[in-house]
Design a protein around this nucleic acid. Structure first.
Lengths: 110, 110
DNA sequence: ATTTTATATCGCAAATATACGATGAATGTT
DNA sequence: AACATTCATCGTATATTTGCGATATAAAAT
């Protein structure tokens, strides 16, 4: 990325929606979230058993989900229990809801 | 990316959701979609006027939205009129709906 | 005190994404 | 025919993402 010419500013909701969408934009991370929904919670190790990826890779995906605010981890060394961050999950849900509620019914030109 | 060890396969819905989410995961593309929702349709030039980005950059973002299936373009040289691809838009809406409908109410561990 | 367990982080390589200017293509205008 | 308009695509530079193995960390088990 360059963005040398100008810094673009977007609305708060646009920024947030993009942030969430980006985090959701990888099948591994969706699989992790789906797994979390089945088990309520899980440890990194559970995911390592399921996904054919290195532990470090999965840890990285978890970090991204965490940074995006979609999950949270309860450290309990040497284990970490992950689960959905409900508050932000609902926020994301709401943002996508709004996005998809755009009224495209009037379109007839294409 | 390498993925040399194994090729991972995900469910159809996971793949599709990730595809849509990825396309939505950039503020410029969300802005384009928002603009399309306001005007029903628009030309590349309209977006160039609004966004402080080079025409080629915007064209590239439009291509990604088109490749993801979220928009469609009606070529009418030298102009191209873009609008939402309603069918896929609804499909995306449904996929995100399903994703966010995951029941996390039972969570109490974190 | 050493080893084991579970996880995060670092450093690297390859792939992909983002952005730009230049150029090409298609049509309309002069 | 030459030019203008509108847009896509190419080539390139840089940034970010994805993935891995190796290593670090922190507590429990031996």
């Amino acid at each position: 990325m360059k963005r040398t010419t100008k810094n673009i500013f977007y609305s708060e909701s646009t920024e947030k929606t993009a942030r969430f969408a980006k985090a959701l934009g990888h099948p591994v991370r969706l699989t992790i979230l789906k797994h979390l929904s089945n088990l309520s919670c899980c440890h990194t190790g559970d995911l390592v058993d399921i996904l054919p990826l290195a532990q470090s890779t999965i840890s990285q995906h978890l970090k991204e989900l965490k940074d995006a605010g979609l999950i949270q981890g309860e450290v309990n060394p040497p284990k970490v229990k992950y689960c959905i961050n409900i508050e932000n999950w609902h926020k994301a849900q709401q943002l996508f809801d709004t996005l998809f509620k755009e009224d495209f019914s009037k379109i007839s030109c294409c």
